[in-house]
Design a protein around this nucleic acid. Structure first.
Lengths: 340, 340
DNA sequence: AAACCGTCCGAAAAGGCTTTCTGTGACTGT
DNA sequence: ACAGTCACAGAAAGCCTTTTCGGACGGTTT
């Protein structure tokens, strides 16, 4: 600490003494209660200012039973999906008077339990549980005395409040976009089939193709892994087997990047001959590919913000329930310019 | 939420009543104090268990003047450098009994001030300020009643406690690694010259070359932007102008990726003819390049952990001060295999 | 029998704040 | 001049826990 030896935190008593009033009056003056003369109020406020008084939120919380804090429980901070959700939630709460406890369980149930105990002990008024996959997760155990909202990864219990992105719809959006670009022979290559996200997007894509009276290239979705390598390999295979393919819907930007690399190496022109769309809208990938990559954005910050709002409502007692799926959006870049 | 209508939080009084003892005895039993008969203790513990009693940390904090909370103030959560630091800090605290308030100021001084007020009001015992660049930042204003540790972005005030990564040394490490690979004609291409990190790495690199009696290719560092595009362009230029270049030290993995792409297109074999090393060790880039990319890791989680430890020590009164620079490390992958 | 000791438990205070209730003085209406 | 209002300030209770101190009780020593 540069200067100043840790001055004791001023209390309301100090302020009252300095202003020459009782602590009751000081409290009322500071909190804008009515029963105080204007002149007295300013005197108190000046005293508070002078002592740089900050009311002790613990004492206030203890008395009123409202702490103005919530817990944000993530299963892995590392995952790039948790962060935006977390940002959105922090944003929504921080704008109000609510402070956020951050806990990272690192995917460990024991640690999660530990953190929940600690949070309840601190009398948080609610919990947001942020997952790293859209697969439903087991709900928090024990009858918690506070409301819980699940974000990104919904709860397995349909009565819980869950907010996630609508991946089925997103699959349809992607296909519709490629169709609007004039493409008809569209392949869908995606990641690990064990991911609900992969399944959902695939289902949405198939449905959208069917509605257009079409079928995906190869008659199916190509599941693999969430890597560039898979994208490169599968693109090469598809070009060999279905040389008239004119659109790729990729389940992630990483896969899309691999696909683009292969197309480039094989001399296929994107977007003149083939359109490509990725998923996640991850800037480091979308803006560095050649050409820049059109992608689906899951609006994860919005997921976080809505989760925060729902938690707030639940705390206020107007509890909704069930899974709420928020829409995704297409961010168009060079890789999917409509054919003239 | 699923079932059970928000049961009121049990208090120590409830436990005491159920166990048939006074609250004083209940408290002692639960906290392992000596003055309690074993039989009484178990009775109390059973009662506590039955009511799922969690001691009210607010009341305890109010009494003892220790809240067991700290504030984590980031200037932008988005930045990929803040996250690992934040994870490390959360990890170090979470293991103990300390809970973490997360605040994102979004690079806005007003918002930062607002969050600091809120945190002090909640009586945090200390603050960690996480920046997104290694450039020194203005210290928090006002005489804060709690210790502050600056992580990644050090404070401009040398008396403050700051923890960051040693970028000068890292520049030397990278060059030493390339030298150990048998390279002698090494180019250093990096990002925006306005970044302290870029300058530091460059200085370290030049010094290491000088110590080996060598000079960087072109006699200087090539500053540009932190993008693949810059990497591609500058690599192409260097190959034209200094065709005998045999090593690239890149200031970021993005730049390295661009460099690799160009080398690949120009038919240069990495790592047989040319070695490449990146910076940041960002998995999405290092593991997807062809060949996989050797990179410098700044050990940011470690920065976060050390920051947490230093803050803890400062809270305990043993305040160190000054900038502490932690070492980086090389993570070797295929792009820099030693020449036989 | 008196003094003493050790063990275990409970009463009470403290911590900072908000809120309710009571009290005081100045004013209004008749 | 007297009751009745009104505006304002203060006393005190309460939130929940921890800790100190003293009391009760049974047993031991002189």
């Amino acid at each position: 600490m540069a200067s100043g030896e840790t001055p004791r935190n001023a209390t309301l008593t100090d302020v009252a003494r300095l202003a020459g009033v009782s602590i009751a009056t000081a409290s009322k003056a500071i909190n804008g209660r009515a029963q105080v003369r204007a002149e007295t109020r300013t005197r108190v406020l000046e005293a508070a200012e002078q002592l740089s008084f900050a009311p002790n939120a613990l004492a206030r919380g203890l008395l009123q039973g409202r702490t103005g804090t919530v817990g944000l429980l993530t299963s892995d901070l590392e995952g790039r999906f948790s962060i935006p959700v977390l940002m959105g939630a922090e944003d929504a709460f921080g704008a109000g008077q609510v402070s956020v406890f951050l806990c990272d369980a690192r995917g460990d149930a024991i640690r999660e339990q530990h953190h929940i105990r600690a949070l309840l002990s601190r009398r948080v008024e609610g919990l947001i549980v942020v997952g790293s996959r859209t697969d439903p997760r087991p709900p928090l155990t024990g009858d918690l005395p506070v409301p819980v909202v699940y974000a990104y990864a919904p709860s397995e219990n349909p009565e819980d409040i869950s907010i996630t992105a609508n991946n089925v719809e997103a699959g349809g959006l992607a296909i519709d976009h490629l169709l609007a670009c004039g493409r008809r022979r569209i392949a869908h290559v995606t990641g690990d089939a064990s991911y609900a996200a992969a399944q959902d997007r695939s289902r949405g894509a198939e449905r959208a193709m069917a509605e257009a009276g079409l079928e995906l290239v190869g008659g199916r979705t190509f599941f693999g892994s969430w890597s560039e390598g898979w994208g490169r390999g599968v693109a090469s295979m598809i070009l060999d087997q279905y040389p008239d393919v004119d659109g790729f819907f990729c389940g992630s930007d990483q896969i899309a990047r691999g696909v683009l690399d292969t197309l480039r190496e094989k001399g296929r022109d994107v977007p003149r001959d083939i359109s490509v769309i990725g998923f996640d809208n991850w800037a480091v990938l979308t803006t560095n590919t050649r050409p820049q990559l059109t992608s689906v954005d899951m609006n994860l910050e919005q997921v976080g913000r809505v989760a925060a709002r729902r938690l707030f409502e639940a705390i206020e007692g107007q509890a909704a329930s069930g899974i709420e799926e928020l829409p995704c959006r297409i961010v168009t870049r060079e890789s999917s310019v409509p054919v003239p």
